[in-house]
Design a protein around this nucleic acid. Sequence first.
DNA 1: CGAACGTTTGAGATGACTCAAGCGTTGTGG
DNA 2: CCACAACGCTTGAGTCATCTCAAACGTTCG
Lengths: 244, 244
Amino acid sequence: MFTQRFLKDKRGVNLAPSERAALENAISDVRQVPARTILLRAGQPVNASTLLVEGIMSRYIDDRNGLRQLVAVHVPGDFVDLHAFPLKVLEHDVATMTASTVAIIPHAALEDVLSEFPAMNRKLWFATLIDAAIHRAWLFRMGRLDAVGKVAHFLCETNARMVSAGLSDGRRFALDLTQADLAEICGLTTVHINRVLRQLRDEGLCVFRASVVELLDPERLSRRGQFDDGYLYNERAASAVSML
Amino acid sequence: MFTQRFLKDKRGVNLAPSERAALENAISDVRQVPARTILLRAGQPVNASTLLVEGIMSRYIDDRNGLRQLVAVHVPGDFVDLHAFPLKVLEHDVATMTASTVAIIPHAALEDVLSEFPAMNRKLWFATLIDAAIHRAWLFRMGRLDAVGKVAHFLCETNARMVSAGLSDGRRFALDLTQADLAEICGLTTVHINRVLRQLRDEGLCVFRASVVELLDPERLSRRGQFDDGYLYNERAASAVSML
DNA sequence: CGAACGTTTGAGATGACTCAAGCGTTGTGG
DNA sequence: CCACAACGCTTGAGTCATCTCAAACGTTCG
């Protein structure tokens, strides 16, 4: 089941088994994609969307000087460019960060699924709105946190999402990114990311090394990054927002 | 028609007159709201959404030190918290920035409209995805632009959105915000915003004063802020992305 | 008239950047 | 199987953009 992790563990939505099966059937192709491969370019018409099965993907916007800003990082279970289904054109690129397995769902097939299961409309909509909520958390991170806070926030978020995907035990997970990747995610330079990571290590908060992230002190790390998992709408979230 | 400006001028979607009328009918209440009034708090259950008819509204996330980061600014015609319809709880506050007129649409009424006009589902979804695209443009702005670029980008974006709403002639529009507001939007300090505005004025790019924004040289201002209007999905956009 | 608010300016501090170099690891071709 | 190129990580020194703190000024409104 390639769609197993999609919308798993999200408050307020559950795909019925029949719905999940229909989605699974809509998959036209499952592909292995090497690391650092662009799947979609800004401005191209899109007629299929990508469900991430294994690996890490990114969405990013290029600036004029050849630098880029990541606007999203995706973990297994994410429907990476579902928003292209209503939009039809995206204003950013979509690429793999690590070697990935992706399931391709043509928009025409998705259309058929939705006419058979109209209730899924709302659920897919919901899924894209969680991405938007993550965008907002990133805006907060970029605007209000210092460098150490930014990295702390990102690692807490990724940990929480990996927990939902069943890929983190809550303290430790595989994340095969480089320090340059973290720089593009946090809007910092690679050199400075290096110093921030050392600081996080020295303070006993977190270790990022050899493709593994380990939160040494999740509690203090969350506080350092002002991280509150409410915006992820996870089933068992710790935050005040989600207590309601 | 309070809904007149909603989804006006957007590529790929058009509300049919009957759909617009149904939406209009779903309005339970139209209210005048003073400036700087909180309409919705993070974590509250939401059972109605707000269409902005006149004025400027914001969405923001508070940090631990009492500062806040705006994650969205809304202009007339925006369905400010439509995303609360599927989500039911938001992780940010919603407030007016200037004195505003808002139309309240209860979720129950919206549900009725959608069962009568199922095609509207996709159009409302689309509307929330444009907000997400704006979030991404903001992420780019926050991560990759210097202070002058950030302010330039925001003013270009707001101008483009005001043009769509019929409230800017492309160079000049009313925007009753303070320099402190700009600071919360751009993730800068008020003091620095002041210096940036002087620089924009001195370089003949833009004047922000007395509740009016005037783009003295829209072309150069766009370049300074690396602004490309493609992400707004406006009907007549200038950008490469939108040419497709 | 005075209080509140927003804007403007100056001086000094600092967090993050730039440039530069060295080091370790990995993969590859001779 | 070694050598070297490519890549990512680490560190240092100096610079610069933005922040902080502080004060003064103008405008609006009760």
